[in-house]
């Protein structure tokens, strides 16, 4: 028997030992077969809670939401597809812009868009080789830059960077992916509350008023958003109205909004993090008790532009209302 054969025989025995150790070591588990996840629906079996949360989220509806379809003319405006049906974030890289996908568009911003890694594994909070999706602990998932590919198209991440929120250690997930039941052991919820969630919007701003001499001074302060209020362009605005007590019709006082790119005649009036907007109300109608209300609009167009009415506008919600008595 030649030396080579002896050497190969020893090598084979060593390999066998390694193989047996890998399979039968205490607490060890076989590595899962490599497979490609082709749809987020495949995630549901193992991640039922997360999947159920995501299904109710705006991410899940980014392709099917009727308001989005209306504003994009049923996606005839193809420019919207890049972010409303994106390829995986990790495909182009953290902080880079996402690219549009062609398949499974109705799944919107789905599990695969955020978790699929270029090697076919899934980004997660733990590395588990034996799980079918073979998750890999990936800290990048929690970085604001992860969200930036889409959400910084409207400068939301830049607004956060310019605020004091990073220094406070508060980032996107603090508000939009809080721990379930405030318990870190329960993991982060995948509902992504934002502008569609009235409680989140109410937490973002405070509405105050006081009498100064012969006028009312109204203040709106961004106390709870780590970015401008509202953020996102075009389809978001927040409007301040007032009326003498007892009157039915609201009177428009001020609009907080970043205009769409075609609206070159309008200035951006966004309320940045930790800043306060001050407006005054004067005149004989305001000498008595008045009501002031802040509305949040998920589409900024009035039925009659000459006569803004928050009660007839589509997709408007009352955020705060106060009554002021001299």
């Amino acid at each position: 028997m030649s030396r080579t054969r002896i050497f190969l025989g020893i090598a084979l025995c060593a390999l066998g030992l390694v193989f047996l150790f890998e399979v039968f070591r205490p607490g060890g588990a076989p590595v899962a077969e490599s497979r490609t996840f082709a749809s987020s629906a495949e995630c549901r079996a193992c991640h039922a809670e997360v999947y159920a949360e995501w299904e109710t989220s705006q991410h899940a509806q980014s392709w099917t939401n009727p308001a989005v379809r209306m504003l994009s003319n049923d996606f005839a405006n193809q420019d919207c597809i890049d972010c409303h049906a994106p390829r995986p974030v990790f495909h182009t890289g953290i902080g880079e812009r996402v690219l549009p996908r062609i398949t499974r568009r109705e799944e919107g911003v789905d599990c695969i868009a955020c978790h699929l890694l270029p090697d076919g594994r899934m980004a997660g909070t733990k590395t588990i080789d034996s799980a079918p999706c073979r998750p890999v602990a990936t800290l990048d998932l929690q970085r604001p830059e992860f969200c930036a590919g889409c959400h910084n198209q409207h400068k939301t991440v830049d607004q956060w960077r310019e605020s004091d929120w990073p220094a406070r250690g508060e980032d996107c997930s603090s508000c939009h992916m809080p721990f379930r039941d405030a318990d870190p052991n329960r993991g982060r919820a995948h509902v992504f509350p934002g502008g569609h969630d009235l409680v989140t919007v109410q937490r973002a701003v405070e509405l105050r008023g006081r009498r100064v001499d012969d006028r009312w001074v109204i203040e709106v302060e961004n106390v709870g958003a780590g970015h401008s209020y509202p953020t996102d362009e075009r389809s978001r605005s927040s409007d301040l109205f007032w009326r003498p007590r007892g009157e039915e019709k609201w009177r428009h006082l001020y609009r907080i909004r970043d205009p769409y790119r075609t609206e070159t005649d309008l200035a951006s009036t966004l309320l940045h993090a930790n800043t306060t907007l001050t407006q005054e109300i004067t005149g004989p109608d305001a000498d008595g008790p008045i009501e002031v209300a802040l509305f949040y609009m998920r589409q900024p167009y009035w039925k009659d532009p000459a006569d803004p009415d928050p009660l007839t506008a589509d997709l408007s919600a009352l955020v705060h209302a106060i009554e002021l008595v001299p």
């Binding site: 028997m1 190969l8 090598a11 084979l12 390999l15 066998g16």
Partner: peptide, 17 residues
């Protein structure tokens, strides 16, 4: 596991094939 894939080749060589 990749090493295990090479095992048949090594086995064949060791056995004189």
């Amino acid at each position: 596991m990749r090493l295990a894939v090479l095992a048949p080749s090594l086995l064949a060589a060791a056995c004189g094939g």
